[in-house]
Design a protein around this nucleic acid. Structure first.
Lengths: 189, 189
DNA sequence: ACCTGAACACCGTTCAAGT
DNA sequence: ACCTGAACACCGTTCAAGT
């Protein structure tokens, strides 16, 4: 059932993922779904859990902040793996139900890069927000572009989707750089 | 009309901001709205523009990165000024229609802090994504908390809404620190 | 120029009743 | 245990027609 929902999500997008459409895809009446899930929100939380769980840990390099970078890209890839994945995860993030593991994964990676646990937790929150914001934006653009509702990249630069990975890396490196600078400041006294 | 919509948004939230409800608040038939706006999306873009436009530039301090910090907080305040403000702005960001000025405002502030224009533009994108992600999360929590659908802060720390401003500042300072570190690296050669 | 009336094609959710 | 049938209270949008 969650599988069928993910299929609709990926094929037709979040707006088309309705309880009625999901029921139809399972050859069942819409009301039948409410025996399995109390409401749509809970269904989406389940999907969010599955999406972030797919985040396969990448091999971390040897350079500074490489675990953090790897975890951030792994999360991005997991979100990009399903159409509107970021939207789904974002919508359930505040509930604290699903996708909590995403934050923990980032925090662990930051700690693995040798940063203090207290900093790692707060930085993970910041990084998570950046990742969600970035990928949401990226996927929204993909959707609008495919609909022909093009918008010539507000600001004028017009780098397009190809620049997204670069922009993402830039943001991640900025946060890592900030962490390193903070650590350097402390160790200097 | 946009005024009436903002009123509903603030009083009852985005889910209750329907075309039918807006029409009723104006003592008009729903179909009448379509003479003024082609669709709901355009209406929301208009609202996003107005929300972001309210971002009153704060007085920047004298310390490094103060313009950037001030602009980030001004944007956060503007988003927080309306219920679900971040959601509304996020939803129209990818369209490139409304809220484009938010990114420009941040980029200008970063440049005003003495960073190179090319870095400023990319950093503004990262900062914007962080701000949107953070405030969206914050406002979603506010809504869930008020509905009693409490979630004990995934992760266990349980800092609550009071920690939001601190977390926000931490994230902004991380990004500013990253920019400074990058600049230092360049000037060293 | 601006709005009404009526319709079209949908939603999420509930709940008695069936098997 | 799991599903159907039927209903409730909604959506956004279109479009001829009115003033």
């Amino acid at each position: 059932m969650a599988r069928a929902a993910l299929r609709i999500l990926d094929d037709d997008g979040l707006p088309d993922l309705t309880m009625r459409r999901l029921a139809a895809s399972l050859d069942v009446q819409p009301s039948a779904l409410y025996w399995h899930f109390p409401n749509k929100q809970t269904l989406l939380a389940e999907l969010a859990d599955r999406i972030v769980a797919q985040a396969a840990p990448r091999r971390a390099g040897a350079d500074a902040g490489s675990h953090t970078r790897a975890a951030a890209f792994a999360l991005r890839d997991a979100l990009l793996a399903y159409r509107d994945g970021a939207e789904v995860v974002s919508s359930t993030l505040a509930l604290g139900l699903g996708a909590a593991s995403a934050r923990e994964g980032l925090a662990d990676a930051i700690a693995a890069d040798g940063f203090a646990r207290t900093d790692a937790d707060r930085a993970a929150t910041a990084l998570l927000h950046f990742v969600m914001g970035h990928v949401s934006h990226e996927q929204q653009r993909l959707q609008y572009d495919s609909l022909g509702v093009v918008a010539p990249e507000a600001g004028g630069a017009g780098l397009g989707a190809s620049g997204s990975a670069d922009d993402f890396a830039f943001g991640v490196d900025l946060l890592i750089g900030g962490l390193q600078a903070a650590r350097a400041r402390v160790s200097e006294g």
